[in-house]
């Protein structure tokens, strides 16, 4: 079983988000970076579980600069066997997908895992792009993944419900809550992570056609209007007449 888990590095969930004065750059100072939670908690852990029960290898892959290696080592500490870093700043989702697809094209991975989306770009784009580049089936938002020989049974989140699916290996999947439980790396994992191989691969050229113009912060709220807890008729009136939402 050869499993590839694509991991992204994102600002911590509590990070204060700010930008350069012209709005073109995310202000990194004082921000702690983490592995994108869905990539870590669900995709990576499920891949490790499958490898532990069926044998094989888990490769963790990140497209990014050398500074991301702390995050990559964490993936190794959680249980990936080897890691690959494609040495380029991500320019956009298709640029990243192209790098991953180039790397994966001749490696014969059985499953390529992604988290359901990143908590910074919130795009949910890269998995589908890689699937298309490699002409593989794609299941997004999978909350369960069981293997039965060369067939996978999956459950996926749809609006207001779930779908049960079946697909043959190889395929691409994005993982959502339910697929696995978060794993805290133990001491042994952290120690062995230092000696596991981390290969650096040079990128292929690709021109991203979606370009950032600028970031802005949402307008601040006007401030809360407090309503007397004894007087809920007043709240209903405000929601009807002032806010006009009922």
């Amino acid at each position: 079983m050869k499993l590839l888990v694509c991991i992204s590095q994102t600002p911590d969930t509590t990070a204060k988000i700010s930008f350069s004065s012209d709005g073109t750059e995310f202000n990194q100072s004082g921000v702690q970076f983490i592995m994108n939670p869905y990539d870590e908690w669900y995709a990576l852990v499920r891949a490790c579980e499958l490898k532990e029960s069926l044998g094989g290898t888990v490769v963790a892959l990140n497209v990014g600069p050398a500074a991301n290696e702390t995050t990559i080592r964490k993936a190794l500490a959680i249980g990936a066997d080897e890691a690959v870093r494609i040495n380029t700043e991500a320019q956009g989702s298709m640029h990243v997908a192209k790098q991953i697809a180039e790397y994966a094209s001749d490696k014969g991975f059985d499953i390529i895992f992604f988290g359901k989306e990143t908590i910074d770009h919130n795009g949910s784009e890269v998995g589908a792009m890689v699937a298309e580049y490699l002409d593989l089936p794609y299941v997004s938002y999978a909350s369960k993944l069981e293997l039965n020989g060369s067939t996978a049974n999956l459950q996926r989140d749809i609006e207001g419900g779930v779908e049960e699916l079946e697909v043959d290996l190889p395929f691409v999947v994005s993982a959502s809550k339910g697929m696995a439980e978060q794993r805290i790396p133990n001491m042994r994992g952290i120690m062995t992570a230092r000696t596991k191989p981390l290969q650096v691969v040079e990128p292929v050229a690709f021109e991203e056609s979606t370009k950032l113009v600028k970031f802005t912060l949402p307008p601040a709220k006007a401030g809360v209007k407090l309503v007397d807890p004894e007087n809920m008729d007043e709240l209903v009136r405000l929601l009807h007449e002032e806010a006009k939402v009922i």
Binding site: S93, G123, E125, V130, A131, E132, Y138, V139, Y141, E208
Partner: peptide, 22 residues
């Protein structure tokens, strides 16, 4: 949506198109 998220990236690659999702 759950459907659109499965399609947008694929379609962008197929059509050589820039994508903005969400």
């Amino acid at each position: 949506s759950s459907t659109g998220k499965s399609l947008a990236g694929r379609l962008a690659v197929k059509l050589n198109a820039g994508l903005v999702s969400g």
